[in-house]
Amino acid sequence: MTHNLIPRVVSKLLIPLIILFSLYVQFHGDFGPGGGFQAGVIFSAAIILYALVFGLDVAEKIIPPYILRLIAALGVVLYAGVGLATQLLGGRYLEYGVLGETQVAGQHLGILLVELGVGLTVASVMLIIFFAFAGRGRP
């Protein structure tokens, strides 16, 4: 209990910052370096750090595995749904321009939604893989 006091205190300080940074990378990704994949990995790294320091059971209570599976599927549905929506509006698959009033506004919205789908799926799949490996050998 006491032998990992320092990692506990510092990770309490750092985990909110890591999640905040992942949201920055996610939603600033169309102006700077970043995007859905990187943001998802950073987000899952925050949860993995939490699981390493505070224990696997507590982490699985915060984000239960069945919700993770739902989110992973939801991200793919969002990605594919944007593609289908552009087709329904008269463009080609994932042709973002038709989504908004102008070409630029449509591109902006389309990229944001698609990257959000990628981020959701990557974060939850990383966590599913981590929980599956870390939970081996448990009854």
Binding site: H3, N4, I6, P7, V10, L14, L17
Partner: peptide
């Protein structure tokens, strides 16, 4: 960030 993580990483390794 480095100021907090780097000593804690060494501490965690040694521990």
């Amino acid at each position: 960030f480095l100021f907090f993580t780097s000593p804690v990483a060494s501490h965690a390794l040694a521990n």
